[in-house]
């Protein structure tokens, strides 16, 4: 599992092992101020990081910046 969230310290506290930081609490994967294409590009970028996290071996809780 990869946990995508904005407040990564909470994710660390509850014990997620693969963590990908998000943009903001009300829009973790996107940016309402951007154009629709940019909004989606931000989402794509975060999801690409998630794929990297899935493919990376980890021994401890890891935040994929």
């Amino acid at each position: 599992m990869v946990h995508i969230c904005t407040i990564t310290p909470i994710s660390m506290t509850v014990g997620a092992n693969r963590i990908v930081p998000a943009i903001a609490i009300p829009y973790p994967l996107g940016n309402p101020k951007a154009t629709a294409d940019e909004d989606k590009a931000i989402r794509r970028e975060i999801m690409e990081k998630a794929l990297v996290a899935f493919e990376t071996p980890v021994d401890n809780q890891t935040i994929f910046e």
């Binding site: 599992m1 990869v2 946990h3 995508i4 969230c5 904005t6 407040i7 909470i10 994710s11 997620a16 998000a22 609490i25 009300p26 973790p28 994967l29 999801m47 998630a50 899935f54």
Partner: peptide, 8 residues
């Protein structure tokens, strides 16, 4: 075998 969990 791959779960993306999102939180706000």
């Amino acid at each position: 075998n791959a779960v993306v969990l999102t939180s706000t």
